[in-house]
Design a binder for these strands. Structure first.
Lengths: 347, 347
DNA sequence: TTGAAAGCGCTAACAC
DNA sequence: GTGTTAGCGCTTTCAA
């Protein structure tokens, strides 16, 4: 109480340090550190410990993280790099990752790679926290270099497992998801399919294209075309429009690389006077809130986003503990809703 | 595991420090600090400066932020607390805030208050970075206490400007937005309106309700009811269902507190065999991507989310510089799209 | 059971 | 112009 107490609103009020606590409790600063760091068992008397804790509470003591980090050489903070904040998928990844991190006493700092494309600005400069490790999710190829630069343990999510610079990867079996969707449509009788593909150069989209092509080719008499679109409703609409109005017989199914493109595809169909799913079937990937917000509700591949984040963080924690951490692949599942049906009789 | 010495776990290579740079450049460590901190003009010779920079680049030197923070007592990092990551609005707030922060050499750490409701876990514990200031956006009343606890300069976004603990506020003229929407519908001839209100106790939603009630009451012969819903498509659908199937004559317009609820309202209408906008008009607030992803595209109030973030950060920067920072209110605007029209003839 | 002291990497005041 | 030095607040030996 001697000097301006702890919780002044202003920045001015001098911070309470462990020395203040020590003085107030009548012990040395080292003892404070021991007690509050929970390392006092059998080294400090119960009574002293209580006094320290009381004093700390009283003064509103908060350890200075910068000092601790400096001393320890570790920050207990990891960076999560995502291509976009606007996509729910990454919000869920964050949630899963943050939960596991918290269990280990770690914090997670989010770094949204600007615009999701192009080389990210240096996150090690922008996120001013010092970092113990990095998790990067679904990065486009050219945004990767920067993430790698830090020389920190790196776990990649939804990315090429063969990348040599990563300590571990956690992937979605997205290829299987595309296969499920394709087989669903093929089973319904569709033979002319257009892949409305994301115009993003990343592993996850390359896998989708490959799996889709494989599944469709396996059935004789099928035709697969591809239309590329940037990730957006309007872009999806335009790509679908091209697909539906191009030369030759009209496709009966549009398989979109994500739900946003699928929403655009539905709009394109509707504006052409086509009904979904009676005239055209549309499928997405992600199972965002959007998938059930639109009408008809989308048949889509649901992705365990939170599990991805959680597994990724577990892997990183293991790496930081010096344990090995291999590559994980999480299963995904098709959810059939109202945007897919057998092709029209003539189709 | 008691490893007394420095860099235990990390990526083997011991970190390059400014001492290493100094040794390599053949100067003192202080000179390195001067040069790299860009404070050398007229104190260090051009040649020495060059040598230092070359050595730093050569060795891949990165200053230890923890040490700098400790020394300076400031971190050049601010925390942005948002109720939910899944909402695009906050993603844009972040973008605006981060841009301004970067211009001032600051970084922004995002703290998504868990679940958007209920008391947030302590962000000063979770976001491990030490902080210079806090910006909080659209917080529910009960989540606020925690944010306030840090004793740091606090700027509130989209929140009660009369709150005494804040250094500054940046608000949207959301009341005016609701008024615009109401007058739009009233002007089209609607007289039975239901407010599909967010079941969230925060300033922004209280203002919406009040403004809406005021605008509707100003026109004689109008009836305004309220249905409450948690923020979600399904919840919005159910609330709208109640509104459309309740006793008495059916409302001709549903004014929703945000686009997500509006999407749900559209679904409810459609499932009842009602057309939007011919039988019921629906409006939202936010102008998310969702607003133009659904069919019909939503008439909604567009919010300058990025400007909110940018203004908030400017205010915080001012406060940190010891300058005054008042309260700002940003205008909003109704965008009329396809979900609103005159009420049906009999309506 | 407790205290004294070193030192993490950096910046800035001050000496040379 | 450049080097020396003190010290930010903390954790952790080591000595008492």
């Amino acid at each position: 109480m001697a000097h301006g107490t702890a919780q002044g609103t202003g920045p001015s009020a001098a911070r309470v340090t462990s020395r203040d606590v020590a003085r107030s409790a009548g012990v040395s600063q080292a003892t404070v550190s021991l007690v509050l760091g929970d390392k006092w068992r059998g080294r400090v008397s119960e009574r002293t410990a209580d006094a320290v804790r009381a004093a700390a509470r009283e003064l509103g003591y908060r350890p200075n993280l910068a000092a601790r980090s400096l001393r320890l050489g570790r920050t207990r903070t990891v960076l999560l790099v995502v291509p976009a904040l606007t996509n729910e998928f990454f919000a869920h990844v964050y949630t899963g990752a943050a939960r596991v991190a918290a269990d280990h006493g770690f914090g997670v700092v989010l770094y949204p790679s600007p615009e999701g494309v192009g080389p990210a600005r240096d996150p090690f400069d922008s996120a001013r926290a010092s970092l113990d490790g990095v998790i990067a999710s679904s990065m486009a190829a050219d945004a990767l270099a920067v993430v790698r630069g830090g020389g920190l343990p790196l776990v990649m999510l939804d990315s090429d497992p063969d990348d040599p610079a990563t300590a571990a990867t956690v992937n979605l079996d997205i290829g299987d998801g595309m296969r499920q969707a394709a087989e669903h449509l093929l089973g319904l009788g569709h033979r002319r399919i257009v892949h409305v593909a994301a115009a993003v150069d990343s592993w996850t989209f390359r896998v989708r294209a490959r799996a889709l092509a494989g599944a469709v080719r396996a059935v004789p008499g099928t035709v697969l075309h591809t239309e590329r679109a940037a990730l957006g409703v309007e872009e999806g609409r335009q790509a679908a429009l091209r697909a539906l109005t191009g030369p030759g017989p009209r496709p009966t199914a549009l398989m979109c690389d994500d739900d946003i493109l699928a929403a655009g595809a539905c709009k394109a169909a509707r504006r052409l006077g086509l009904r979904v799913p009676e005239d055209v079937s549309v499928t997405g990937v992600d199972d965002l809130a959007l998938a059930t917000a639109v009408e008809p509700e989308l048949t889509t591949v649901t992705l365990p986003a939170q599990a991805v984040g959680a597994e990724g963080m577990r892997a990183l924690m293991a790496v930081l503990d010096g344990e090995p951490a291999g590559d994980t692949t999480l299963p995904v599942e098709l959810v059939v809703r109202d945007s897919s049906a057998p092709p029209p009789p003539g189709g």
